[in-house]
Amino acid sequence: MYSKSAHDPVGPFDFSERHSILINAPPSSILSYVRHYRLSDDALIRPALFLRALPARLLRRAPPPSLELQDFTLLAATDRGLVYGLKGAFWQPDYGLRRFDTSMDFLGDRDASLATLILSFMTGPAPRGRTRLVTQTHILCPTRHVWRRFLPYWLMIRPVSGLMRRRMLSQIKARCEKGS
């Protein structure tokens, strides 16, 4: 089993990313928009999703899914946040995804050949009656082999992933504040 160094800055996870935004809306409204958000609706993100599917197309395979929130397993939902999980070999052209029907199935899975991605959306109070929405992405690689396979993928995808998260937060803010 791969063990992390004692001075790893992201705690138990191998890779992490965090973004936040202030929104003039209550947490319930914000989380409703999060649940229904679709990356593929964003005209600037669609080209990135196309490029991610290019290796599969070049290998004449079916393109991978665009990984909408609906493809993730809902692990927890409260009045302040949502936590989703996804397991796969994300570096493969088809993501090597494993689907789970329940959070218990997801949490009980111990396949050491897959990376685990945890995606959370948490709300909290902010100054002047606003709400802070924070999204965090954490990836756990259970073995050194999985970590070595995931690292090049992370280095390529992280800038795009950050852009996608920031655009997602901005669009959720705009929709919440507009009320549509």
Rank of each mutant, 00 (worst) to 15 (best):
Y2E: 10
H7F: 14
H7K: 13
D8S: 15
P9G: 07
P9I: 13
G11F: 07
G11I: 07
F13P: 01
S20N: 09
L22F: 08
L22M: 10
N24C: 08
N24K: 15
P26I: 08
P27E: 02
I30E: 00
V34N: 05
L39P: 07
S40T: 14
D42S: 12
A43V: 14
L44R: 11
L44I: 12
I45Q: 01
P47S: 11
A48G: 12
A48K: 02
L49W: 03
F50G: 06
A53G: 08
A53D: 13
L54H: 04
A56E: 02
L58I: 12
L58S: 02
R60K: 15
R60T: 05
R61M: 15
P63Q: 05
P63V: 05
P63S: 06
S66H: 08
L69K: 02
Q70H: 04
D71W: 02
D71M: 03
T73K: 01
L74C: 13
A76E: 15
A77K: 11
A77T: 01
T78H: 07
T78M: 07
R80M: 07
G81K: 04
L82M: 11
Y84D: 03
G88K: 03
A89G: 13
A89K: 12
F90Y: 11
Q92T: 13
P93A: 03
D94F: 03
Y95C: 07
Y95F: 15
G96N: 00
L97G: 06
L97M: 11
R99L: 07
D101C: 05
T102N: 04
T102P: 02
L107M: 13
D111Q: 03
T116R: 10
I118C: 06
G124L: 01
G124S: 14
G124W: 02
P125G: 12
R128V: 12
R130S: 11
R130E: 14
R132N: 10
L133K: 03
T137N: 10
T137G: 14
T137Q: 03
T137H: 04
H138G: 02
H138E: 13
H138I: 00
L140I: 08
C141V: 03
P142D: 07
T143P: 09
R144E: 08
V146K: 00
V146Q: 02
R148F: 13
Y153G: 09
S161I: 01
R166I: 09
M168S: 03
L169P: 01
Q171E: 04
I172T: 00
A174Q: 12
R175C: 07
S180G: 05
